[in-house]
Design a protein around this nucleic acid. Sequence first.
DNA 1: AATAGTCGCAACCGCTTCGGT
DNA 2: TACCGAAGCGGTTGCGACTAT
Length: 327
Amino acid sequence: MGKSNSNEKLELKKGPWTREEDQKLLAYIEEHGHGSWRALPAKAGLQRCGKSCRLRWTNYLRPDIKRGKFSSQEEKAIIRLHALLGNRWSAIAAHLPKRTDNEIKNYWNTRLKKRLTRMGIDPATHKPKNNPGGSSQSRQAAVVSHMAQWETARLEAEARLVRQSKLLSKLQLLRKTTAPPPPPPPQTTVPPCLDVLKVWQATTAHNGFFGSAAGCLDSPTSTLNFSVNSGAIPTFGSVLQNEVTNMNDFGACKGKIENSVQLLPDNSTAMTMGYDYNAAGAVDLEATNCDAYNNMSCTYVGDFEENKNYWNDLFNLVSSPMESPVF
DNA sequence: AATAGTCGCAACCGCTTCGGT
DNA sequence: TACCGAAGCGGTTGCGACTAT
């Protein structure tokens, strides 16, 4: 009786989207952007909730989505990333351009998980099922676990940096009213990302995964090469710093994570990340002196030989010769 | 040809996280 | 600091398509 709001809520449509609905959503977003998802359905003339519209857009209608079969490179990347990140589908999707988290999740659950199971590999742990508890296996599991922790810490640090950058952008906007504009930021080719997968890419290109050729294992140092977006950063000399200590949440792992960002005279940034875990002698990782992200040295103080063997065994099982992951 | 079982994918649900006040 | 709304995320479900019997 005149309560149109409640009536509208009752009439919200569910289930598969029709072509007409898709067209309405597409047309609206192309013209106005999505803005507030909650407000979008009414504005676009759709009898859907905002959440449904967001999902339809992000998983299906977005123009930058690649659909269809996953390539073998993509499959390998998913398996590697899952071993590192677990069921963090959005984080995995971030490494696979044009694939959605939903698509990757479905693909894992319906195919890759089964394939690994058939091969006798536990898809949850990425370890062979029929050889549990060996000391070597335990150490390998510890290595993988700590790599995952490292990646987790990296993602958290990146998230913090993004937040800080946003904050600094706002501060800079305020400052613009009284100060001359700063020089434009340098060109960016790759987003800033302290990514262990870049190490894989670098090593597999020459040696296979954690290959044994000189320069990888003989010298336990890998070099990452990528440029940095240094837009929205503080003035020269200022430093952002974060520190996390006593990370007892990581089981037996104890240690410290710290990272800092500093603006250099050439308007680039220097970043230092320290990872100082000690867990039953499994592996220690350090990432130091990430000079403007352009030349990051990662020093692995862990057991590289076991690490190499574990991953090579796994991926030799899963597929034919190693290729670098997809980026 | 009919039916049951299986598979793959789109969409939903509920919890968590984030940002503003 | 607490609260609230919006958005994000991962697990789960529903259903059409396909396959085996």
